[in-house]
Amino acid sequence: MKTDLSIRFGELELANPLVAVSGTFGYGFDYEPIIPPETFGAVVVKGTSLEPWPGNAPPRIVETPSGMLNAIGLENPGVDVLIEEYLPRLAERDTKVIVNVVGRTVDGYVGVAEKLDQRPEVHALELNVSCPNVDAGGMSFGTSPEAVAELIGATRRVTQKPLIVKLTPNVTDITVVARAAEEAGADALSLINTLLGMAIDTETGRPILANVVGGLSGPAIRPVALRCVYQARAATNLPIMGLGGVSSAEDVVAFIMAGASAVGIGTAMFADPRTPGRIVEELKEYRSRYDEWPIGRAHQ
């Protein structure tokens, strides 16, 4: 069945709504040949900082009911290595490339954005605002509407690339930060990042993760993510990438109906790498039911 699954996500025309989310798909090639990067409408590459970040000590992950906790610590080789080694390879493949940008200071984010601004391989930047803000005592940028706005403003000044802001669910009201991002000039939102959690080894009496706390992902967080997308859709006019526990074509359609025009998949690939290919195949049947993608239908 030849069905056009294309969808417009802000300024990006995606071949299909499915997006490989940051930190779960490396730089696009680790799962070859089972999951080629062109399976996705877009690939969001690993969180990238100005300088290399070594990441956290192990253990970095622990399985939980219907999901997992991770505290990788945003290990990455830095933006220069991304530009030299990975972007050229990824540019040869038929998918949109989004770079997830991380920093500990506003200057850190701005430095990465500046270096990527002239790279034709990069179609958009995703600002990961869940990083601890060193200048604000380590509190995450994403929990403060003012800090998010400042970050977007500063990044906007150095790049013309579409700016997607990835919101954290670890806030009282996600619509406050979503509105702040819209007013500050963000082009799109992606939500949600992981939920903060922890696990304890009852034999040793110690936290399992060396970092003590980590981010919860997987099907366990899907209802929370869907709720956040629904709320953000109602509160702003920005295009939304919905993500959190997506494991089936039905999940993708639910996120679209909540208001998303791109839908991320991550942890489900670990459980079964066949999932993305299966979803894209099954989306064809869903797509044939509608004249156009039912974006935000749940709000009608």
Partner: peptide, 23 residues
């Protein structure tokens, strides 16, 4: 402890004997 098994998620880290270049 491992999640992806293919090198994508960086979950199964082991410390290098001689760290260097930010790695």
């Amino acid at each position: 402890r491992m999640a992806c098994g293919v090198g994508a998620c960086l979950g199964c880290a082991i410390p290098m004997a001689k760290p260097g270049d930010g790695k």
